[in-house]
Computed example of a mutant assay.
Amino acid sequence: MQTPSRTELPLTSSGSGCGCCSTNSRETPAEKTAGVEYAVEGLTCGGCVATVEKAVTAIDGVDTATVELVPGGLSRLIVSGPAGTSEIRDAVISAGYSLTK
């Protein structure tokens, strides 16, 4: 019985996930830094992060919303898209957290 041939896939750097399904491996440095940054208070866990990201991405005009969690401190919310600060602030407040800029 012969083993089927395999195709070698390129490896990605550690921490960015596997090469076949990691979205990080497809991003350019400009895509990672694009967007407006906000400081968010009150986030303590991954559930908080998911709640804020879901609330903000639901806004018309938001392309992406990513939170970098700092438990007990000011977490960083990065939003790309043409949505305004007031809409983003309202979404964060309605999710139960406070936004500082």
Rank of each mutant, 00 (worst) to 15 (best):
D60P: 14
L77W: 00
T64H: 11
E27G: 07
S5M: 13
S5Y: 10
P10E: 11
G17L: 07
A58D: 09
C21T: 12
S98G: 04
C20A: 13
I93C: 04
G15S: 05
G47T: 08
C45S: 03
E27V: 06
G46V: 11
E37A: 12
I93H: 06
A65C: 09
C18F: 11
S14A: 09
C18V: 11
I88S: 01
G61H: 09
G73H: 11
T51E: 00
I93G: 02
P29E: 04
K101V: 13
D63N: 07
T66M: 08
G84R: 08
T64D: 08
R89C: 02
P29N: 07
K101D: 12
T44R: 13
T23N: 13
S14E: 10
S98R: 11
S80C: 04
I93V: 15
L69V: 06
V70H: 13
A65I: 05
G84V: 11
G19H: 14
T85R: 09
S25K: 15
R89S: 06
T51Y: 01
G47Y: 05
T23P: 11
I59P: 07
G61F: 05
Q2E: 13
T64V: 14
T23M: 15
S16E: 14
E37P: 00
E53H: 01
E37F: 10
C21N: 10
A55S: 03
R26E: 10
G72W: 13
P4K: 13
R89Q: 14
T51S: 07
V36I: 15
C18P: 09
A39V: 05
A30S: 14
L69I: 08
A65L: 07
T100S: 09
T44E: 12
S75V: 00
